[in-house]
Amino acid sequence: MGSFIIRRSFTGILIIFVAIFLNFMLIQLAPGDPISILSGQDSPSPEMEEALREKYGLNDSVGVQFLTYLRTLAGGDLGESILSGRPVSEMIGERIGPTLMLTLTTAILALLIGTLLGIYCARRPGSKLDNLLSGLSYLFDSMPSFWLGMMFILLFASWLGIFPTSGMVDLRANHSGIAYYIDVLHHMFLPATTLTLLSIPYFFRITRSSVIQVMSEDFVTTLRATGMSEGRIFNKYVLKNSILPTITVFGITIAYMITGVAIIEIVFSWPGMGSFMLNAISRRDYPLLMGIYLVLSISVAVTMIVVDVLYAFIDPRIRYSK
C-alpha cells in the first residue's frame, strides 16, 4: 500500500509538471499581446513598449522564459499580475476560498444524495420511483447549467424574493459572528442547489447501475446459497463492491467542477475564481492566467491521487498490479 501511494504521488507530480509546461506553451502560442493592452489604447510610444517588454522579460527566448518561470515558481512566487501589479498568489488566495467552499459542498451533497438515491432505486428496479428518478436524471443532465441558474434567480430571487440574487455576503448588512455564516449560507443556497442538482445524475446513475450489476454477480448467488441474510449480503458485500465506480466518478466530477464552476459563479456573481479567470483570459494577463491554471491543475491532480489511493484501499486488485 505504501509503495502504491508513493508510486501514485510520483506520477501525480509528473502530471503537474506536464501541466505547467502545457500551460506555458498554450499561452505562448495564444494570439494577442499584453504589452499593447498595458501601454494603453492611444498610440503608445515604441520606447515605452520596449521598456515594458524588457521589464517583463518578454524579449527573452521562449526557453529562457520557461526556465525563469520554473525558477520563480519553485520559490512560491507566481509572479505579478500585468494589469494590477499585485502578486498573483495573493490574488488567487483571496478568490480560491469561495470557489472551494462552493465546489466541495456541492460535490459532497451530490455524492451523498445521488448515491443514496441510486442504492434505493437499485434495490427496486422498475418501480415507480425508480422510473421517475431515472427520467429526472436525464432531464437534469441535458440542462445547461447557466439556464437552470438563471431560472432559479428568476423564481426564488426576483419573484419570491426569498434568496439574494448575487454575491456571497450582504455588504450593506455588515454581519458578524453566526449571522455572517448564516448570511453566506443564504447566498450560497441557489448556486449550490443548481450545481448539486446538475451533479446528482452522475452519482445516481453510476451507483444504480453498479449496484444492479453487482447484485447479479456469481458471488452473491454463493452467499445466498450459504444462508446469509439479504441484509448482510447487501451491507457487507454488495456495497463495498459497487462503491468503486462511485469513487471514480467522484474524482472526475470534482475535477470537472473545479474547472466548470466558472459559469455558475458568473451567473450568481460568486466571488470565486470563475469570473476572475474569464477576466484574466480576456485581458491576456499571462502571469495571472498561468497562476490560475497551475492551481487548477494541481487541484485536479491532487484529487485524482486521493481518489486512486482510496480506490486501491478498497480494491486489492489495483493495489498489487503495476
Binding site: F219, T221, T222, N241, P316, R317
Partner: peptide, 14 residues
C-alpha cells in the same frame, strides 16, 4: 453447493 465458475464464487474485494 459448488458452482461452475469458482473464480467468481467469492467477493473480489474481501
Amino acid at each position: 453447493v459448488v458452482f461452475q465458475k469458482s473464480m467468481n464464487a467469492l467477493s473480489p474485494v474481501h
